[in-house]
Simulated assay, not measured.
Amino acid sequence: MSQGTQVRTHLCGIRTAWTEAPEAGLAVREVAAAIGAAELSQIVVFFSSDYCVETLNGALTQGFPGVPVAGCTMSGGISPAGGLARGLVLIAFPRAGFRIVSGVLDAIDHHDVARTAASVRALRRTLDGEAAEAGPGGRFALSLIDGLANAEETVVSAIAWALDGIPLVGGSAGDGLDFREAILLHGGAIHRRAAVLLLVETDCPTRIFKSDNFEPTTTKFVVTASDDERRIVYELNAEPAAREYAMAVGLDPEGLSPMSFAAYPLAVRIGGEYFCRSIRRLDPEDGSLSFFCAIDEGVVLTLARPRDIVTATRTELERLDAELGGLDLVIGFDCILRRLDAEHGQVRHGICDLYRRYAVVGFETYGEQYRAMHLNQTFTGIAIGRRPAP
């Protein structure tokens, strides 16, 4: 086993493993050896877009024979050892205490709400058929969605509606900051422009959560020209979007970068609460701004200022730890812009310390899902407590 491969067994029975092995086949062989022979109900894997996905998929089938596998490309990995720039993070759910069903939604860029709802309801019926007597943990749902299909809002709202109260969290698959292609795995097959949904019933206590680290300012922008389907904003306040944004934050429009967008997020107010609508990139040809979320003409965007990201994250994890009587594992979906913000503020080490302390695993995303909403620059996930004594 290479020096970079590590494994952890949690009190709830889940085993997690992570590696920065440079080649897909080697990475899977090492984590499979680390996980060992066990009765597993599901494998969930987040992996670098640098890996050959065909090699990875074949190695997972061989390394975990007979075990359902779901996964996606990541913009970075999260492990108790800290952040991973490349490699693979794997979560192995045991059969004992976890009942899991999953499905895939293809062609989400041509989304059919009725078809999605029917698929989700069918999954619920399958889980009902396998369900044991309800324990204190209950149920939750995990979503993995192509973050480049520009379809999260419609897909997530349809899924949440059909889940009928089962809490949903998840993340949008990405590929670093390349914005070329996101890939998903399910049922031994490779999927693009797709979403994977897992429904989980467990005996362990659980809580879904979301955390952000921004607060609104008094600076407002009205979207006056946009392409809703492509998530492109051409004008803010009837001025070229990039120039108007740059002037408001005191930067040169030509110098705007992902680091700038992380440091000066935009937010929209919904139901009295602010949610981030983060900028993906600048098009220098026409001065437009592409977003990670859908942006309609007429929407009012508010410039936000970051709060201390370490303090905000620690506060949320401490709250969950107290509510659950001790955190055993956190499966987290963290926006890639939060990582850039932490690096810009030179506090990434503080975030990594929290990952270690609270056993956080997951991936860095192009967007986060929480209940019926698609979010940006947010940390969402499922916190799992220790299994109750029999």
Rank of each mutant, 00 (worst) to 15 (best):
Q62D: 15
L60R: 03
T315W: 02
L26W: 02
F221Q: 09
F98Q: 11
L127N: 05
A17Q: 09
T224S: 15
S143I: 15
A359K: 03
V249W: 05
Y370H: 07
L337W: 01
E318D: 14
H374L: 01
G147V: 07
A238N: 10
F98A: 11
R305N: 11
A27Q: 10
T224C: 11
A37K: 15
R319N: 13
P390Q: 11
E318P: 02
A92N: 09
R277M: 01
R371V: 08
R280P: 00
I35M: 08
A162L: 08
C72A: 14
C204K: 01
F93H: 01
L329C: 06
D252Q: 13
G287Q: 12
V45I: 13
F333V: 02
Q6K: 15
I331D: 03
A151T: 04
L56A: 05
D178E: 14
T202F: 06
A24H: 03
V222M: 14
G362Y: 07
E368V: 03
A173W: 05
H110Y: 10
P65R: 07
Y358C: 04
P167F: 09
E152F: 02
V299Q: 15
A107N: 14
Y274M: 08
S2D: 13
G350T: 10
I331M: 13
R230F: 11
G137C: 12
P216A: 04
P390G: 11
L184I: 02
V268E: 13
F291P: 08
E130I: 13
L105P: 00
E323N: 01
V104P: 02
T218Y: 09
Y355E: 11
R339A: 03
D212S: 14
I159P: 02
E244D: 12
T19E: 03
S226L: 06
I336L: 14
Q6N: 13
C293Q: 13
E235C: 11
A24W: 01
A248E: 12
A312H: 01
A131K: 13
M373H: 13
F275W: 08
R281Y: 14
I145A: 00
I183G: 01
V113Y: 04
A372I: 00
G137D: 09
P68T: 10
A267Q: 08
I309E: 08
R192D: 03
D203W: 00
V31L: 09
L56Q: 08
S48D: 15
A262W: 12
A312V: 01
H186L: 00
F333K: 04
V300P: 03
G298F: 13
Y264N: 09
A246E: 02
D321Q: 11
A342I: 04
G4L: 15
T5L: 12
T378D: 02
L88H: 05
V200E: 08
G298D: 05
I384A: 04
A85Q: 12
A304E: 00
V222Y: 06
T73V: 12
S172L: 05
L251D: 13
G170A: 08
E133W: 11
L329I: 05
G165E: 04
E239H: 15
T218C: 09
A267G: 09
T16H: 05
T302F: 06
E152N: 07
A372R: 07
A122T: 11
L123N: 06
S257G: 05
G83R: 05
A246G: 12
F47R: 03
